[in-house]
Write a protein that binds this DNA or RNA. Structure first.
Length: 154
DNA sequence: GCCAACGTTGGC
DNA sequence: GCCAACGTTGGC
């Protein structure tokens, strides 16, 4: 079992939005970065844990925990001409953008803010706190996962 | 809204 | 394959 951090802009899609989909979950569409796509395509597995992170908002923070429930999904937004994520080079036969579906597990009792994470030596190796750490899908180490959950579920 | 740090594109 | 120009991300 592996662990990940998924970024989302809450104005676009928040953790509450994910909670609202209940056990059905939601396809994580719109990823258009190859490094992130490669993680989604090659490494993310059903049952993996996801830290749900709110970016580009007043207080960037890990808000909740989610779980991967389906993998190897061709991103439907790439086929949708009306979507801002439409990509004419992605075809049904040869989809360029592969993603996964996740469902909410639980909200953290206390969000773990970016500020907090940057100040914490235990989390210094996280991609999120690294200079220029822009990846929207990034691996999280087991000890980082445990540490964040311990802080957030107290 | 600014801007640093990336990523992508396309001419050569 | 280099690299300048351009686009995007995302914290502040």
């Amino acid at each position: 079992m592996k662990y990940w951090l998924f970024k989302s802009e809450p104005d676009d899609f928040s953790f509450d939005d994910l909670i609202a989909t209940k056990s059905k979950g939601e396809i994580w569409d719109g990823i258009r970065n190859y490094q992130a796509r490669n993680f989604l395509r090659d490494e993310v597995s059903v049952g993996d844990g996801v830290l749900f992170y709110h970016s580009s908002c007043k207080t960037p923070a890990v808000i909740g925990i989610a779980e991967v429930i389906e993998t190897q999904i061709a991103d439907p937004s790439a086929f949708d001409r009306d979507s801002k994520y439409f990509d004419e080079k992605s075809t049904e036969d040869n989809p360029r953008w592969i993603t996964v579906k996740i469902k909410a597990n639980k909200a953290l009792k206390q969000s773990i803010t970016l500020k907090q994470m940057k100040a914490d030596a235990n989390l210094a190796e996280m991609h999120l706190v690294a200079k220029g750490g822009r990846l929207s899908i990034q691996p999280v180490k087991h000890n980082e996962w445990e540490y964040i959950l311990n802080l957030g579920l107290e």
